[in-house]
Design a protein around this nucleic acid. Structure first.
Lengths: 229, 229
DNA sequence: GGGTCCTCCCGTACGCTGTATCGCTTCTCC
DNA sequence: GGAGAAGCGATACAGCGTACGGGAGGACCC
């Protein structure tokens, strides 16, 4: 039955079925393995089924559509972003630890970027991650709106960085793009870019913590200002 | 000829052909129109060709693969992020203006998010945008590495925010996801989330400028510290 | 003016995708 | 032991990107 509850998130729907050889867990695990080995594009229903010695349509006993599988995959590996408790007591250190952990999870499963950039992560593990992010700020005694603002800003920066890092690592677009870039810049049409990139695109340093520290400093300054005007 | 220069960015390759009815510009314009009206998923080679009264394979005279078309589309609409000169003289105001403009362009063409999150924007218009971002910081007299750090941080935050904003607006995943969210949180498994979301997910305020201001404040503080230690 | 070549355009075809539909088999429960 | 449910899958369909090869027609040279 292709039921009418397509609007209900996967996790809220029971697998429905007397499982034997297949299972939702096995399907997700197989899909994650394929993605890890060959990228997200290699994850097709037929391919995952083959990996389990089954046929394509058998998977549809456990998921309703491929999007469900992608949701489950994302939630599966976002679990790796969980930080061992207890969190550092300082909110900035705690927030930074969580952000680092999120980045590490994505580095371990690069395809996660393509999923995160398409959907909100609100599966069980995604919620645990969110819970931890809120916990990191709990010592500040802020109200709900203020907490959400900080959470959003830190999360936005983190995901933006992760995205750029991921795209920059794409082997298809580096050498040739750099060459084109240098050539265009050399035309003189970009006066400010020219002195910066005359010798090509420099090796990027790892600026993740620098930017995050700037942001946290700015947030901290805002908090001080509120407390002691 | 499916030439061997697939590694060269589209913009560097001449269209090659005695154009008559079709042209690269017309193809890109048609593709943008389809994406604006029906989303990026509706942009298929066959569909764009039909829009121009042509057959699918005709487009391949002007592009080598669909990815090229997507690159061209992204660069086409990122032009809207260009800010009318002169830029505000204050670097923070200038940076903020550019970031606002980037956000506005994406709001005007939501599908741009799906492209930006997949590739670096380095077409002619993307470079103009980058040029402006560098120009905004030129008054600070920083060296290349310091400029790039600030550029990266601001860009990461901006794109992270835009991404979240885009995903949150997805009509498919709001009501049902919220319901599931509330139910899970109600189980008591998430002690820090519970007091925050007991009554459901609150209406989000627009925090774009708040977060960006935090980041810029943090950057400014870092600059002061360097100047007068 | 006639031949040659280059380029636009596209008909056809291939391998791939997600998934609707329906039927078979096997297990569970009364 | 009969009935119903549930796992599994064969088949099929519409759609995708694009490789290949051919026809049409303008541009150029002799």
């Amino acid at each position: 039955m292709t039921s009418e509850n397509g609007a209900v998130p996967v996790w809220a729907r029971p697998p429905a079925g007397r499982r034997t050889t297949l299972s939702r867990e096995a399907i997700v695990a197989a899909a994650v393995a394929v993605a890890d080995a060959e990228g997200l594009a290699a994850v097709s229903i037929r391919r995952v089924a083959a990996e389990l010695g089954a046929r394509a349509m058998s998977l549809y006993t456990y998921i309703e559509r491929k999007e469900d599988l992608l949701d489950l995959m994302a939630d599966e590996v976002i679990a790796e972003a969980h930080v061992a408790e207890p969190l550092p007591s300082d909110w900035r250190e705690a927030t930074m630890t969580i952000a680092r952990s999120e980045r590490a999870a994505v580095r371990h499963h690069p395809w996660l970027v393509e999923l995160i950039s398409r959907r909100e992560a609100v599966g069980p593990n995604g919620l645990r991650h969110l819970e931890q992010s809120v916990a990191a700020l709990s010592g500040l005694g802020l109200d709900r709106a203020a907490t959400l603002r900080i959470l959003a800003a830190v999360g936005d920066y983190t995901r933006g960085f992760i995205l750029r890092e991921h795209n920059a690592a794409d082997p298809r677009r580096t050498a040739a793009v750099d060459r084109y870039f240098k050539e265009r810049v050399g035309t003189g049409a970009y006066p400010h870019l020219e002195p910066m990139f005359r010798d090509g695109v420099p090796e990027q340093e790892d600026t993740f913590e620098i930017g995050l520290t700037w942001l946290l400093n700015g947030i901290a300054a805002g908090l001080d200002r509120e407390e002691s005007p």
